[in-house]
Nucleic acid binder design. Structure first.
Lengths: 403, 403
DNA sequence: GCCATTTCGTCAGGGCTATTTACAAATTAG
DNA sequence: CTAATTTGTAAATAGCCCTGACGAAATGGC
């Protein structure tokens, strides 16, 4: 940043104020123009002109008069439109595909999913199957009067900075896959992002409110153990987009060697494969026996619920090791809360005792541990919401209703 | 943030554009109005009016005509004023006090320091001694035509959110000290910040350029081992302001118990006290023998330079343990670079071999390791620059020259 | 030395944005 | 029914930046 700091023009100001109005309604609920003006600190006049633009663009809708009981003329209630733009989110998991659509109000308006063995697959056919699902969801919401404003795809891997390419997805066996030229291109310019990141953003946007009140470390386990650092309402991505690799934080000085090149990585003790091995199962075999998102976790959870001592011991150990890694992360980040998402949310009942014990022992006062309520849906919902968020952030550019 | 997003009014836009002009000159060097306009993307007309305000406020100064050799009328060169506002920075160390003043151009215009045994001291007398130094520096820069715009104090401890109080400074033995009512109050509303944070910000603002190109983890050791996470040009402070406690990241699963309540903390193996013990010295005794900022590090560095095998072995071990902690931090943050500051910069020649070896072993490709060139001056300079930065960020509010 | 060319800084006019002020409309309280 | 209160809009105003034009001050070729 030698020079050229961000430009601050009048259009910029207008754009931000339009976004401010939308977020005032999104965060604070439906309200009259005057109430919105109070919330964002502009005058009623200014808000009126902003609202006019947003009504014309189909982002806001008037929802009748709001009789509050107090004296004075009642205001016309403004709400985010449920027939305006919507976001399409897709997910490419190792053994399933899913698509959903959410409207500006955050409601899921359509969804579709199929099992699909994507590990070591060719991108073409997988994307073709996904495109079918997208078409299905697209048609459904279009029939409901919504206009898809974009498509974001959650992938278990690294994504290029412009979000157009999947740079590397080890568990799929993909390298350098261009989404914009494949079968997905038909609907909207498709964009990709990492599934763990989208899961964390979902937590920030529609999950536990604690994520909105301060910095948070969001831990999720799907195949590996990932995490995401939410600071100041944004995601810390790091230099190459690799930030959050909690699974490779060392928890034993001279422990098991790991595929990452290190040794004693958390993943060797608390990862899915390690848990399966610890209860005497072959990881590859277990995946074949229990395909689908979260299936192994559900299986382990089931055995834990039945009181299986091997599983309970394995989960206890994993919680302890997770506690060591999170002790380090907490000292480094001083987060407002630790959020367990994905498979960890499912297994939380049996991880939490040893995890909280270890954190308490080492930290004295540990940040509150929160279990996500989004579960395995996080990445998919995050993808769809990323699209609607982009519309809210820059209403007139992306949000204009088709003529 | 239920409601009330940031307000975007015309005054805001103006303020940012004023700041953009100043930063264009600060980062890109002196330049004509037309050149500044090119840099920040505004028109020459707009820049002219902005510059008029900044000249009137005494923040910019015209420095004659710039004959470039190219055809065309030469522009009048604009530079940051060296007689305008300046920043006062102060530092309360465990065994010294220091004050300096920097002008808008970043030059140190005055400084003063004294040794002072502040460990376990009463705040009153210490602040009184510091106030004397401040007065001295203040008078010196005032004589040079500068106007101190504020005073920031670097303290080895935790500071309240409004920067008015020292909440806790264990190494000084201070709790809840209000700076605004003490002897410092005479000069300007004094504000405090943590010394490690200010050291990292100094690195960001005037240190290695790598800190300005991406996220960076800045590691410093004064008494403990601290660090600071610089992301997106800002400092990640965490929930309570405790972020960056690298010294208490566990590096041994069942290691030495630590005063923090944990065990196996990095500080037990790579901290100053641990190093001194490892070479057979009593830490308290060593502090008495070698008072002053960085004195123990300098002493150890001296013995290392002489080839003392005990010291070399201790530093080698510290480098390895630091490498383990930084492996975890790197996986978590994926920083653009790791910067060694403070005492670590002094000892870097003997820490680096084992540190880089450990990082290379565990990470494959580690982020570049950079040794700070600011050394022990970082926090003090950061404090002074924090004041001038605040002036640049909001020129007309804080920067107006006294009438 | 003189003129064309180029660049710099400024002035006048205009557009966009939000604010101020005023007012009609719609409700409650008495 | 009247007074009080709140809402939404209209007209006028102020602030900020942009466009277009112009004089000023340099270079370069003749």
């Amino acid at each position: 940043m030698t020079t050229t700091r961000r430009l601050h023009t009048q259009q910029d100001m207008r754009r931000r104020n339009l976004a401010a109005v939308l977020y005032a309604v999104a965060d604070g609920g439906p309200a009259s123009r005057a109430r919105v003006a109070d919330r964002i600190g502009l005058t009623r006049t200014a808000v009126s002109t902003l609202v006019d633009d947003l009504l014309a663009a189909g982002l806001l809708a008037e929802a009748g008069l709001g009789h509050s009981g107090a004296p004075g003329r009642p205001g016309t209630v403004l709400a985010l439109s449920d027939r305006g733009p919507c976001g399409l989110g897709a997910e490419i998991g190792v053994d399933h595909l899913a698509v959903c659509a959410v409207d500006l109000r955050g409601r899921v308006r359509a969804r579709a999913a199929v099992d699909s063995a994507n590990r070591g697959s060719q991108p073409g056919p997988v994307l073709a199957r996904l495109a079918e699902l997208v078409t299905h969801v697209h048609d459904e919401v279009t029939a409901a009067g919504l206009h898809p404003a974009g498509l974001r795809v959650a992938v278990p891997g690294l994504v290029s900075r412009d979000r157009a390419h999947v740079v590397q997805a080890p568990n799929l066996g993909w390298r350098d896959v261009d989404l914009t030229t494949g079968p997905l291109a038909a609907h909207a310019p498709p964009t990709a992002d990492n599934e763990a990141n989208l899961g964390a953003l979902a937590e920030l946007w529609i999950g536990d409110p604690v994520c909105r009140t301060g910095d948070v470390l969001h831990i999720s386990a799907e195949i590996g153990i990932g995490s995401a650092i939410l600071t100041d309402g944004r995601l810390l991505r790091g230099n190459r987009g690799f930030a959050g690799e909690l699974g490779h934080v060392p928890v034993r000085r001279r422990g098991e060697p790991c595929a990452c090149g290190g040794r004693g990585c958390l993943e060797q003790y608390a990862g899915e494969a390690a848990l399966l091995r610890a209860v005497g199962l072959d990881p590859a075999r277990a995946v074949a026996d229990h395909p689908g998102p979260g299936a192994r976790s559900a299986y382990l959870g089931g055995r834990a619920r039945d009181g299986d001592p091997d599983v309970l011991r394995a989960l206890r150990g994993a919680g302890t090791d997770l506690g060591i890694a999170l002790t380090g992360a907490t000292h480094l980040l001083d987060p407002h809360a630790l959020v367990l998402g994905g498979a960890l949310a499912v297994l939380a009942p049996w991880l939490l005792p040893s995890l909280t014990a270890e954190l308490g022992r080492r930290l004295g006062t540990a940040p509150p541990l929160v279990v996500s309520r989004l579960g395995a849906d996080g990445p998919l919902l995050g993808a769809a919401h990323a699209v609607t968020r982009a519309v809210l952030d820059d209403p007139l550019r992306t949000g204009a209703a088709p003529a």
